[in-house]
Write a protein that binds this DNA or RNA. Sequence first.
DNA 1: TTGCTACGCAACAGATTGTTGCATAGTGAC
DNA 2: GTCACTATGCAACAATCTGTTGCGTAGCAA
Lengths: 195, 195
Amino acid sequence: MTRTEDPRLIATRKLALDAALEILKEEGVLAVTHGSVSNATGISRSTLYRHWPKLETLRNDAFLRAATSPNFAPKTNGPLRADLARMMGNLLTALSETSWGQVVPQVIAAAATDPQARTVIDDFMKDRIASVEAVFTAADERGELCKSAPVRQLVEMAIAVPYFRKYIAGLPLDREWLDAHVDLICQLAIKAHDR
Amino acid sequence: MTRTEDPRLIATRKLALDAALEILKEEGVLAVTHGSVSNATGISRSTLYRHWPKLETLRNDAFLRAATSPNFAPKTNGPLRADLARMMGNLLTALSETSWGQVVPQVIAAAATDPQARTVIDDFMKDRIASVEAVFTAADERGELCKSAPVRQLVEMAIAVPYFRKYIAGLPLDREWLDAHVDLICQLAIKAHDR
DNA sequence: TTGCTACGCAACAGATTGTTGCATAGTGAC
DNA sequence: GTCACTATGCAACAATCTGTTGCGTAGCAA
């Protein structure tokens, strides 16, 4: 119960986690250890053990740092097609360029056995799903959607396929694929039930 | 260039890989080592090093063992809805029960850095996608599909969402979700373009 | 200045990794 | 059965990694 946070604590913590995230991206989870972070930062190994007595906690903190970095503002001005295209474009950018994109498979694997990692990715995805869902509800308020459009399913499809292509099927995420994808989703949202 | 394969080689190899796969499922990739496999099997560590001088090769062989186990026969008798429901049911079963389902996240993570693991999962997914695509083409030959149905996209959607829900979003794969999912895909295949 | 605390350093035991030499025992050919 | 061949187990080894501890130093807040 210290009065204020000691600036040394904060500095060390930040320095260590930045390096840990870098290692996580470059070499994978199993490369993130007290030793490797110590080498990368110059921070003493014993100090790192004092901050993160368990290796698991060090890795999870690195995960959290990655998870909170990409920030998506869901703009919902234009027609559904434009809004969705913009969001999906952002997603593709994130997957291919940001630290999160490179860390995702590591977190997925860790989540299989580590509940804390599972929580990290669950929370992140809830946010992501909510963002896309907001685009649809905004479109609905503008009267663009058909009454019985299965919004929730469409949102999941919109997000699931790019993740699937990149991480699971090893397929490319190029622009022409993206256009077709967005087209199909929009088509569904607008005309799905007029049978 | 031995005349025949020494049965001792085969036996050791099988014993080791069975154990390696078990460890892979239970404890993750990083737990698969010459030491752990030796402990689990009683095979000498030095013998394991002779078979797999690099740890990477041992792990990849374990992956391959997992990848080839679940086998899906794409039956394409009935109407599209029934065929697809059967296939997706099989997929859900595989994801929740078989060794492959438990190994998938491990392979995904490894594939990020290891090209051989990437190949393993790519090949497996190509097969899986082809199986589902066969269901659609069969339906097409029966005249069930609309002319401009985006078959390839539908196939990817059908498969992507369950993987996404299980591994990435941490959402359940229950039966009522499956029904809704299959319904939507079928609806699209049959009526997608009549605008 | 005065406590307090974070840090670096060094040393340590223990476990793990990768390698090697040698003895044993299973294998296939004759 | 005898024979050469080879896969295996065993033991020992250096090298590395992991986790812990005690002590001295230096930065921090009052």
